[in-house]
Amino acid sequence: MATGTDTPKSFQEIILRLQSYWASKGCAILQPYDMEVGAGTFHPATTLRSLGSRPWAAAYVQPSRRPTDGRYGENPNRLQHYYQYQVIIKPSPPDLQELYLGSLAAIGIDLGLHDIRFVEDDWESPTLGAWGLGWEVWCDGMEVSQFTYFQQVGGHDCKPVSGELTYGLERLAMYVMGIDHVMDMPFNDPQTPIALTYGDIFRQTEEEYSRHNFDGATTEMLFRHFEDAEAECQRLLDFPPDDPKTGKRIIMAHPAYDQCIKASHLFNLLDARGVISVTERQAYIGRVRALAKKCADAFRQTEAGADAVEAVA
């Protein structure tokens, strides 16, 4: 809980401060990816762009969905739809920890008053075939961010290594502003004529989606869509690279990756519906990972994902 005069007044102010902070540090401020994803890492700006040797620096908010975490808007901290703030910089700069601490100061956390700790936490995404080493960052015993040096994505070694920061925005904001229930958090400035809380905006949708995720979604359709996405991903990657219409070499890595994202989210929905058994679970994760790997392979064949030397040649 920041108690200084610098304390942000609303959820959006925290987002705006992070945006301007990371913009000032040279990141391209991107917009959320326009698909349903489980975490900010799924944005192609992170997964695909962490591959190859081209330097990259981006920051963005990513709405994220975890269907199993739905609690009908009643749980003070748990949501099936929430926001992550994601920063990805390649190669990871030597002062990334200091840059990160600067961002905490920017949102009103007084580093002389709080206890900030980097506690071992190795990150692994079985669906993306990715892993890295780093920490969860604690502020007064509360996990406020995930800090990771990517070592491998889609089965490819990351060379150079990207540094990834992920902030769980609701939790961080609640902590900074001293709010106990997420739905009570001011979304915009509480002094404005039309003051809105997080609950004004999301309580109803949390209810609707919780019901949808646990009981509404048609599982047969979800299974079918999973198969479709899987097949489409493969089909797009099977195209020969040379496009007869333009005469250019166009590998459809991103459209294929969209299908991989889709398959991943469909799997999450099926999981929330409780129709995937323990043994099947591993098989589905393996199928999504296979897609992610193929997309990574394809992206490495493109200009944006190549190693600099090859790209120049």
């Binding site: 809980m1 108690t3 003070p76 901290n77 002389g112 008053l113 709080h114 206890d115 700790r117 502020c139 007064d140 015993g141 509360m142 902590y175």
Partner: peptide, 25 residues
């Protein structure tokens, strides 16, 4: 007992309050 890594002007009051809150959750 929680162990902080810093001495603060408020003698850890903010840190303790934060930790207490996390513990309550």
């Amino acid at each position: 007992v929680t162990v902080a890594n810093i001495e603060t002007p408020d003698h850890g009051a903010t840190i303790l309050k934060g930790n207490q809150k996390v513990l309550a959750a």
